[in-house]
């Protein structure tokens, strides 16, 4: 499956996020930006390469990257 045939949704659970900043810092394509409090905001979803490293590197299971195959 070609990655361009997939759509992506990113969910941040604000109550689980401890604002470590890993997802923001280590995303190669800068999908996230921090709000004043350090909470990651999904600013550039179109840049997402669906590598899911932000989900795997989230120490608090707060990031969920959902990849769906388009018809």
């Amino acid at each position: 499956m070609n990655k361009t045939d997939q759509s992506v949704k990113i969910n941040i659970d604000e109550s689980l996020c401890k604002r470590c900043g890993f997802c923001i810092e280590y995303c190669n394509t800068k999908v996230y930006e921090a709000d004043q409090d350090g909470l990651p905001l999904v600013k550039n979803l179109d840049n997402c390469t669906k590598c899911r490293l932000c989900e795997l590197r989230c120490p608090d299971f707060a990031v969920k990257v959902e990849v769906e195959n388009n018809e």
Partner: peptide, 14 residues
């Protein structure tokens, strides 16, 4: 059982 007991930035959850 979430949230995890560990500190912000602790890698245990990873």
């Amino acid at each position: 059982a979430l949230p995890l007991m560990w500190c912000a930035g602790c890698g245990n959850g990873i």
